[in-house]
């Protein structure tokens, strides 16, 4: 469990908060909001990449979870092949061991890129690059995955496939996922809970538990559509560009 208390972030002016929110272990939480609502800033604070101006983050049993981060672009190193890209976190944290390569191969297979280990990022499609990026974020065996609008540049079909793959990874690995997106339908489709931030400075507008069943066709149910409509209306009332 992660507990964010009174989190704010100020640059020249306030961009975020104060925000109070709890993220339960093994939950899938999406954050949506208008442009400039501080969604990505919140994610970066959660990951420890930047520090909050005020407020505190506490962890269950005071142990900071091991985190993986997937950026909006795939952030692969173009001079390294796919396997070496996946191995990067282990290299940087000096945790390379005889099993590392096997772990990388396993993750490569899990994201559907078996046999692509020796390819270079320049030889992959946008969707494949994002899959490598997810494998890299997971290879350390982390239990908290943060994603910052990772599928926004992908076409509809690829995006849907990756969303389903992400759900499968979440379900089978017992990880916590914090997912930033500007797509209401994506947030409702993926998450157990959707947090809506107001336009700058981003504050909590809505914290909606998604009623869903994980069977196929959820996005065609009235339940899904009403929740999408509800969140869209909140964002519309708030104004600003999504």
């Amino acid at each position: 469990m992660l507990i964010f208390k009174g989190i704010t972030k100020n640059y020249k002016e306030p961009v975020l908060g104060p925000i109070d929110i709890d993220i339960k272990s093994k939950s899938f939480v999406s954050i949506i909001g208008a442009s400039g609502s501080g969604k990505s800033t919140f994610l970066r604070i959660a990951s420890g990449l930047i520090s909050q101006s005020s407020g505190s983050i506490s962890y269950k049993d005071n142990i900071k979870p091991k985190m993986g981060f997937v950026f909006q672009d795939s952030t692969l190193l173009p001079w390294r092949n796919v396997l070496d890209n996946i191995l990067l976190p282990l290299e940087l944290t000096k945790k390379i061991n005889p099993e590392s390569l096997e772990k990388s191969h396993n993750w490569l297979e899990r994201v559907g890129l078996k046999g692509k280990g020796m390819s270079f990022p320049g030889e992959l499609s946008g969707g494949q690059k994002m899959r490598v990026s997810i494998a890299r974020a997971m290879v350390q065996g982390g239990n908290f995955l943060l994603l910052d609008e990772p599928f926004s540049a992908l076409d509809e079909v690829t995006r849907r496939r990756l969303e389903d793959d992400l759900l499968e990874i979440w379900e089978t690995n017992n990880i916590t996922v914090l997912f930033v997106t500007h797509s209401v339908t994506q947030a409702v489709y993926l998450s157990q809970r959707v947090v809506v931030l107001s336009s700058g400075p981003g504050m909590l507008l809505e914290d909606l538990a998604i009623e869903k069943n994980f069977k196929d066709g959820f996005e065609e149910t009235p339940q899904f559509l009403s929740q999408v409509r509800h969140l869209t209306n909140i964002l519309k009332e708030e104004g600003g560009e999504i």
């Binding site: 970066r44 420890g48 981060f69 672009d73 952030t75 990067l88 940087l92 944290t93």
Partner: peptide, 26 residues
Amino acid sequence: VNNNLHELFSLYGASRFQRLIKLQIP
């Protein structure tokens, strides 16, 4: 060097030397 790449290296606690050899020079 792309800021996201710098952030990626920060996330994994890369040292200055690692950042130079594995990111900036390549």
